[in-house]
């Protein structure tokens, strides 16, 4: 029981630490400084890299589904997103539905 709280609070503490570090380092930076654009690029790459890692090499229960099923889910999500005039809800539902369907068919 105490272990669960320690895990949650420990994770929250390191997360908040990075946020505060960001606040301190942002200092007096101006929006149009090149360093701000560079840091934004790094942040976008970190985010994109994390998301693609979550899809290609997932931890937890998703790891037991075949990679092809997940990639098919991604392709169908993107196709539905653009076909449905950039609807995030429809894209996500189509992609997750495809994964569940394909995983069930292969099982």
């Amino acid at each position: 029981m105490m272990g669960a709280y320690a895990a949650i609070l420990g994770g929250a503490a390191v997360t908040f630490f990075w946020r505060l570090m960001g606040l301190l380092l942002a200092g007096r930076l101006k929006p149009d400084q090149p360093v701000v654009l560079w840091v934004a690029c790094v942040a976008f790459s970190l985010l994109a890299g994390l998301i693609s890692r979550m899809i290609v090499l997932p931890l937890g229960p998703l790891g037991e589904t075949p990679l092809t099923a997940r990639l098919a889910g991604v392709a169908i999500a993107l196709a539905a997103f653009f076909l449905a005039r950039r609807s995030i809800v429809l894209g996500v539902l189509a992609g997750a539905g495809a994964l569940v369907g394909i995983a069930a068919a292969l099982a």
């Binding site: 990075w18 930076l29 701000v36 942040a43």
Partner: peptide, 17 residues
């Protein structure tokens, strides 16, 4: 968690200005 969330630092720096 620190390694997954280290992105918070550049995200905060990029938005704050």
């Amino acid at each position: 968690v620190a390694l997954v969330n280290v992105r918070m630092m550049p995200m905060v720096i990029a938005l704050m200005p």
